[in-house]
Design a protein around this nucleic acid. Structure first.
Lengths: 347, 347
DNA sequence: TGCTAGACTGGGAACGTTCCCAGGATCGTT
DNA sequence: AACGATCCTGGGAACGTTCCCAGTCTAGCA
């Protein structure tokens, strides 16, 4: 019975099994040549003594941490948990630890965590950038995988859920159902994600030969209260659009709640379509039609990409992955009422 | 322009500012005596050179990591993200890093992460235990804070959301509305959390002078599909209870969806009450009445407790915190129909 | 003038690994 | 019998901090 529970180190294992620490190290790392009986002796001793190598000593010497950083805007946003989980599982399977950080949508916090990455010798970073510049990201010095589709981050390996495609998909669906007067709730003004949504919306509308009216693009936060606020604008609009695509599901859900309070029927008076297909989308009433992103796949691909890059298994050119998107039809979309089927404007 | 971007170390800062590394260390840790001008020179140099101390060297030497582990069953469970976030913010503010791990409801993974904690010299652990034994937890060697209210973990500092109280609160509310035939969906059979729910349910029922019928306690998973499955059992029951309390909101939401499909009206035919008040509870139709736990507070308390314990600021006796619980009334509870107001059984 | 306390500072030994290099066996080849 | 080549092993120098201890310098005091 020991009084002070001293840490068991590699030299303890070494002396116990009658070899040098170098040899123990070799055995445990499964590296270099060791004779079979030595290998056995050492592994057995290590097991028996319940030896756990110190990651600090290891990382200090080898200058690698076997850890990656994951910087997302907000874990409480329902889009992320599943992505995080998938990244963790993937990284775990390949022997990497993941450190999670919330940037809370602030650049300063993104910067802070980038410094943090340096302090921790992080081997790589997965980030869903809010507004940190690619240049700053670049000088972190370690491999970076960006989640998102903004062109500015083209220097990095990228895995995107094809926001552009999602919007197009939503617009196509609505138009196919006979809608010609669509609105978009893009996101907060100035937000890059919101900007690409707006652009994609304009392009899709135009592609269908419809006129794009800037007043039909609304700027509200990517949150439930954003959607609620949007509902007031939409309920009051005259004429009112017959369908609205929302920048994400949270907006859509807030919007539907607001619309119900305002006495606007969904989908009778107004069709609503969301993006992300978060869990809650299936729980609303009416259940929300949404463009689904495969979050598990997204996470797995991001992690795989990063680790492959870290381990030098990738060609130099930045990888660019775009994940397919699928429409999940539920009940928040219907054809417009007959008297609202206006003629399609052909420019 | 340097070719190899070598790490800037404490000796670089030292030579640049013309003092020894010991002094730099002292300045940077804000520890010990240093003259004002030296302090200034050093901090300036460090800033200018963008020096980031290596956590590995630091931890290796000091045998402390300034990091804590957080082990939860599943980040994708909507109860946790907010808790995690709050823990992170609190820890961050006190200079600690948090490492997140999903146990995926498996003991083996809990064990694995406990080993991990040893390897990382983690200063402490916050865990919402699935089924790891208190003894195993104890021998992790570092301070542990348990989230949850199971008596078995009484040796540790504990912060609980008062599951017992939540159930009581739910039952009281239902009884106050005139219900006398209640059911409970407790959780998966054998799950400790489910067991305490069942116990709390029996006690509350008895406290109201009602008879407790074991057949009214249903065992289904803490998930939406668990609730869905329960809906089949409940829809078929004859006589059907007039109200059901669900072990968590996920169950309640799945239940309501199943009930709608089965043509059972909520709350007309059956009142439903959930526990946790997750975000999605406000998004369902009808919006779910739920017993709310303050997740942000829960996280903050857990983190504060752990860090205080680590820093020796707590008395020896294990702290036991119980967070209040508040009823959030929405629209999934109504009085039972007149013909179902049976007489209260007085034993 | 000498002596001591106190305020600062520097030097080196840890911390527990990995990495590099040298050296001892063993074996096959000429 | 001599010589590499191959296989295996051990010793010690890193890695970048913190911690301990021994100094130096100044000021205050007798």
């Amino acid at each position: 019975m020991k009084l002070s529970t001293k840490r068991v180190t590699i030299v303890d294992v070494a002396s116990k099994s009658g070899v040098s620490k170098s040899t123990v190290s070799r055995v445990l790392r499964g590296d270099g040549d060791v004779s079979e009986d030595v290998r056995l002796k050492v592994t057995r001793a290590a097991k028996r003594m319940n030896y756990q190598p110190s990651v600090f000593a290891r990382s200090l010497r080898s200058q690698r941490s076997q850890a990656i950083g994951l910087i997302i805007p907000d874990i409480a946003n329902p889009f992320f948990p599943e992505v995080v989980r998938s990244i963790q599982n993937t990284a775990d399977a390949r022997g990497y630890t993941v450190l999670l950080a919330n940037s809370d949508w602030h650049v300063e916090r993104e910067r802070k965590y980038l410094d943090f990455a340096r302090r921790y010798h992080l081997d790589g970073i997965i980030i869903n950038p809010v507004s940190i510049s690619p240049a700053e990201l670049k000088k972190s010095g370690c491999p970076v995988v960006v989640i998102g589709s903004r062109a500015a981050y083209g220097v990095f390996d990228t895995v995107a859920s094809d926001t552009l495609g999602s919007i197009t998909c939503a617009v196509d669906h609505l138009v196919a159902r006979g809608h010609v007067d669509l609105a978009l709730i893009a996101g907060p003004i100035g937000n890059p994600g919101a900007t690409v949504r707006a652009r994609a919306f304009r392009e899709s509308i135009a592609a269908h030969g419809l006129a794009v009216d800037e007043a039909r693009i609304l700027w509200f936060d990517f949150t439930r209260v954003g959607g609620q606020a949007a509902s007031r604008a939409l309920a009051a609009a005259a004429p009112r659009p017959t369908a609205v695509v929302c920048g994400n599901d949270l907006i859509a859900i807030g919007l539907m709640a607001g619309l119900r309070d305002a006495g606007v029927d969904v989908p009778g008076d107004l069709s609503v379509i969301g993006i992300d297909d978060i869990d809650a989308a299936a729980m609303t009433f009416p259940p929300l039609t949404s463009v689904s992103k495969d979050k598990t796949l997204l996470g797995a691909r991001a992690a795989t990409l990063l680790i492959d890059r870290i381990e030098g298994k990738l060609p130099d050119a930045p990888a660019r992955e775009r994940l397919d998107t699928t429409l999940i039809e539920r009940s928040s979309v219907a054809p417009p009422r007959a008297n609202e089927r206006r003629v399609i404007a052909r420019p």
